[in-house]
Nucleic acid binder design. Structure first.
Ligand SMILES: NC(=O)c1ccc[n+]([C@@H]2O[C@H](COP(=O)([O-])OP(=O)(O)OC[C@H]3O[C@@H](n4cnc5c(N)ncnc54)[C@H](O)[C@@H]3O)[C@@H](O)[C@H]2O)c1
Ligand SMILES: NC(=O)c1ccc[n+]([C@@H]2O[C@H](COP(=O)([O-])OP(=O)(O)OC[C@H]3O[C@@H](n4cnc5c(N)ncnc54)[C@H](O)[C@@H]3O)[C@@H](O)[C@H]2O)c1
Lengths: 209, 209
DNA sequence: TCACAAATGTGAAAAAAATAACAGCTTAAG
DNA sequence: CTTAAGCTGTTATTTTTTTCACATTTGTGA
């Protein structure tokens, strides 16, 4: 059964999937757990254990076939079907992400952008449709958007998150430093540069005691 | 002794520090572990446990004094002294971070920017000095820069990281999807939006089985 | 064909982290 | 002053995650 893969394992398997995509493109046919471990900076034990959570053994004894392993992980973690995403807040960060062209190649399709500033909505040059912020619930529902990147100022984050939830969003990448109060069923990933810097700073301090 | 605080605890304490800064500004004097837990979405047990790693008890029985707790964490994790940082790669993401004005208030001082494109170095409008990429080692050393935000294309990331290391950098926030091969002593935090989306995608899939 | 070096898959052991339990202190109200 | 409710600090317990060990399988060269 596939339920209850430890969350750290899910993260490592996601990274492994990306590695396998790259290896496949560059024509590599097979790879061992040891080599994977070196690339991802984790132990070979962990690599094999993570793969074993997927409960679908490949041929034991032989190195992993890149293509087959990629398919196995993709199927298990549902990376196969492309998911629709949107960007909320089209300032510096939001606009950069909106126009980042490489998401498509990885199975994400940014189909809408939102901002409260009508001027931005009307003038920003983008390949997808842009809407004013109040239309979030409607558009998210109508277009079956599952993921959102939230790049608004901290004090607007909760309001926008609520609108996304109303529209039925399933996951949010939150760039603001606001801590969202949100239904547990919705997956949230916080990307706070200030916090990252602070954690690094602490680790540096504690490292050299 | 302060050594060996679990890494998850360091991250939570960093978040707590930020919360305490905000509370102090808005004039809150005291707060309980229960309230902290609600704000940070962790249990009150965990909050108290994390604080106990710092081995410097406040008055037991009374709620935490915001200011004192902030000072304790700041002193223990060395958030008190401001650290110098730089940005490498002044494209969309890099330029946004370079001009983000709020880092100063949190103890980070962005004192330099680097790009291989001389045109950008010369024309970009910024408050700090900008340099061509080959000068990274020299400038990092001379100005005692400890932290770097790396926002270059994936295929340039390793080269830039090596230059930063040569200059004596201590921590890197890496926005590219490249996996850096780097001395264990240097703290690295990867911020890969594509990977975040993928992890969210996996969690969504596994949640509704 | 056979032997052997090199892999994998997984149950078991160890380590790490989260959670709980509770003794003892604090504050506030009567 | 006394009591009761509420809170912290820390030890104990449980759960989660990582690491290990090894039986078993593959591919290769003589
Ligand atoms: N923009 C996004 O939404 C997004 C999303 C996911 C990941 N990323 C990643 O973040 C990184 C930055 O993204 P971006 O959109 O800002 O890219 P960008 O192309 O706008 O900017 C990259 C900058 O790096 C500079 N550069 C190239 N080689 C360099 C070198 N050797 N030394 C110094 N500078 C160099 C370029 O001149 C350019 O200014 C990339 O790795 C990208 O893949 C971006
Ligand atoms: N730029 C950085 O380097 C940086 C660093 C750390 C954190 N952040 C955080 O990331 C977030 C985005 O940063 P940015 O630099 O792109 O900010 P920005 O100010 O450039 O853009 C914010 C955008 O959000 C829009 N907005 C405001 N309220 C809105 C609402 N209710 N609905 C929809 N859109 C709304 C604004 O019109 C603006 O276009 C902020 O929370 C910021 O604090 C940014």
């Amino acid at each position: 059964m596939i339920h209850s893969i430890p969350e750290p394992a899910i993260k490592r398997l996601s990274a492994l999937y990306q590695l396998l995509c790259r290896l496949e493109k560059s024509g590599v046919q097979a790879i061992s757990s040891k080599e994977i471990g070196e690339r991802l900076d984790i132990s070979a034990h962990t690599v094999r254990k993570d793969i074993s959570y997927l409960r679908e053994a490949q041929i034991s004894g032989a190195r992993y076939t890149v293509q087959k392993l990629k398919e196995l992980i993709g199927r298990s973690l549902k990376f196969t079907t492309s998911r629709k995403a949107c960007v909320v807040g089209l300032g510096k960060i939001g606009a950069a992400i909106l126009n980042y062209s490489r998401f498509g190649g990885y199975g994400f399709d940014i189909v809408a952008g939102f901002d409260s500033n009508v001027n931005i909505v009307e003038t920003l040059n983008a390949d997808m449709d842009l809407f004013p912020s109040y239309m979030i619930p409607e558009v998210v529902t109508d277009r079956s958007i599952e993921l959102a990147v939230l790049a608004v100022p901290a004090d607007a984050a909760q309001l926008c998150a609520d609108r996304l939830v109303k529209g039925g969003i399933k996951g949010i990448v939150n760039f603001s430093s606001a801590l969202l109060t949100i239904d547990k069923k919705i997956a949230v990933s916080d990307v706070d540069v200030t916090k990252e810097l602070r954690v690094l700073s602490a680790m540096i301090s504690l490292a050299d005691r």
